[in-house]
Computed example of a mutant assay.
Amino acid sequence: MYFQAAAWSCSWDLQNSNYIYAGLQNGSLLVFDVRQTVRPVNSLKGLTCNPVHTIHSLLHSSTHLPGVRSVLSASAIGLCHWNFGGAEEGPFLVPQTDNQGVCISLAYSPSSDDIVASYRPKVEMSNMAFTQPSLTPSQVIGQGIQGSHIFYNRVGSNCFQKLGSASANVNDIRLPKKSVIIDMESQNRLFASGDEVTCELILQELPSFAVFQHLKIQKQHICDVKYTHALGQGLLSCLDEDRLQIFCMKLS
């Protein structure tokens, strides 16, 4: 497969498993068809050159546009909505997602159309010239600063509604910050994300962001977080640089 730039993210299409989406370092999005992999079937330029760090294929219901496949992506500027199979393809910047700070994470639940985007503060650069100081190991790794989680819900085919927000301890350097929305049977939906200060995986109820549980992890930097459920229990996995931790959640 030929890429215009390094790939940062990918996602299978939830409507048609023949299609794969890839988000590139230069902000572009490629669409591949596994039935013919010589080249992408579509290539769209992004709104900026910021890397597309997260992609989620959106699940369409009967109330959404028939025949249209949709993707929600995240880069530093915020969230972008892309449509395929229709006259308009995008990307379209989701309103009010570009003024929260630097977007570092995106979680999506296909069953509920719930979305949680995480942000860190923007660094304002002055016009004064300065020299780059030597960095200590802790500065290279990054440290925790206060950011935010913003809860959205998709209403209709192209509308997104903000439903809540909460403060969060995020990393001041690293991108992206992985997170996941957990659909619990007979319970509220949960949002799982890493806390850069306490070195924990925090589970919060949606839409209130009330803390549900603290899970201790081995290291601050989380490479990925995934959730699945089977045989009456849920499995929450947390991957850091050199180990995988799995937490068992009993479903009632």
Rank of each mutant, 00 (worst) to 15 (best):
V34I: 15
K250R: 14
Y227E: 02
S179L: 04
L235V: 12
S138A: 13
Q15H: 05
L235R: 01
P133V: 13
A166T: 10
S57Y: 08
V211S: 12
I141D: 11
A168G: 01
D33K: 11
S75W: 14
R154H: 08
L235P: 01
L14P: 04
S57E: 01
L203P: 02
C238P: 03
F32G: 05
F247H: 14
F32R: 09
G234R: 05
W12C: 09
R120M: 09
L79T: 11
L251G: 01
D242C: 07
I145F: 10
P91S: 06
S118D: 01
H229V: 06
Q245N: 11
K219V: 04
E88S: 06
G194T: 08
Q96S: 08
I77N: 05
E185K: 03
V140D: 14
G78I: 06
S165F: 15
M184N: 08
L163I: 06
C238H: 02
K177C: 12
L231N: 15
N16D: 11
K122G: 11
A7W: 13
P110G: 13
N127P: 00
L175I: 14
K177W: 07
I145E: 13
S75D: 15
K250V: 08
C103H: 05
F209T: 04
G23K: 07
H53Q: 07
Q187H: 15
D242M: 03
C248S: 11
F191I: 02
H229N: 09
L72W: 04
R69E: 04
Y108D: 04
K162I: 15
